[in-house]
């Protein structure tokens, strides 16, 4: 009986296998055509240059070299600094929040409500969400008004908007869900018995956190960082709306190069952002090794 059903099973499996291979191949072809090729085209464009609004198709490193001068290096470093700061602060807020939400004894129904609230920002256009903050943070805005009314300040406060602080703040609000959700998912699938076993074997709360919870939630942490760092490096709406032209980031350079029809510069800047992201992610993966082998953690997800 068992032998018959087993051979029937393996037969149906072998029938499935070529089909799944076709699907895998289809995925590779589609993803290659839709994502990888455009990126390669973009990358190759960065080796051309523009002369009097016309792109000349002779390979040159001039565009890449031009990134180093004309203040673009400062802009790049500023972008990197702000993106990393935002990602780090975001992680420091989001990890404890996700841990509390997943394992802090929050009722399942409350968890569902909190998760649903976290997805609300995805329903709204980013620029309309950000522009609201102008009326709250500005010199004539809500907070300034309340501070003056309550007598806490003598005059209107003007340092809440149009500076780096405001840009950081806007980005923190924007990317909170993208950091929290993957970490929450990763932590919530950790078996409670593992956490209990750790305590039972004599581990302090700190040991359990660093030796069990963090290593097992690494895939989620990595996903959260990539989903936050990538958009933060390319952020455009927060710096333009809350920076008020005082906080220029790479995206603003891309925008201005784009409006000047300097496509090779656009290409080089975009490639540069991606390159930075790639380097940061690799650095992060190496850092993550200190907490345990990523491969082992991913293999536990399979089982």
């Amino acid at each position: 009986m068992a032998a018959v059903s087993r051979s029937a099973l393996s037969k149906s499996l072998s029938r499935l296998r070529p089909a799944s291979n076709t699907l895998v191949n289809l995925y590779f072809v589609l993803w290659f055509c839709l994502v990888i090729i455009p990126l390669l085209v973009l990358f190759s464009f960065s080796f051309f240059e523009t002369k009097s609004f016309v792109t000349t198709y002779t390979p040159t490193l001039n565009t890449w070299l031009s990134l180093l001068d004309s203040g673009r290096l400062t802009v790049s470093l500023r972008t990197l600094r702000i993106a990393l700061t935002v990602t780090l602060i975001e992680f420091l807020i989001a990890f404890p929040f996700a841990l509390w939400l997943a394992k802090g004894g929050v009722a399942k129904s409350t968890q569902a409500i909190i998760l649903a609230l976290l997805t609300i920002p995805f329903f709204l256009d980013l620029s309309s969400r950000i522009i609201i903050w102008r009326s709250i943070l500005s010199e004539n805005g809500l907070i300034s008004h309340l501070l003056v009314e309550s007598g806490l300040t003598s005059g209107p406060v003007d340092w809440l908007l149009y500076n780096e602080w405001a840009v950081h703040f806007g980005m923190l609000v924007t990317y909170f869900p993208t950091m929290v959700l993957p970490i929450y998912m990763a932590i919530s699938i950790i078996d409670d018995a593992l956490i209990q076993a750790s305590a039972d074997l004599g581990a302090s709360r700190k040991d359990t956190l660093l030796r069990i919870i963090v290593p097992l939630s690494l895939p989620g942490i990595l996903a959260g960082v990539i989903l936050t760092l990538g958009p933060a490096l390319a952020a455009w709406i927060e710096p333009s709306m809350l920076g008020g032209g005082f906080v220029n980031l790479l995206s603003n350079s891309v925008e201005s190069a784009y409006s000047a029809l300097r496509y090779p510069v656009v290409a080089a800047l975009s490639s540069f952002v991606m390159l930075m992201l790639a380097i940061l992610v690799v650095a992060l993966a190496i850092l993550a090794r200190r907490f345990g082998s990523l491969g082992a953690v991913f293999s536990t997800l399979r089982s």
Binding site: A193, Q196, D200, L201, L216, G292, A296, V297
Partner: peptide, 18 residues
């Protein structure tokens, strides 16, 4: 539990997968 002189063999074994 971490300060008690007893340990548990869990029904699901609860071995650390990583």
């Amino acid at each position: 539990p971490s300060r008690r002189n007893c340990t548990t063999v869990f029904q699901s074994y609860a071995l650390f997968p990583h």
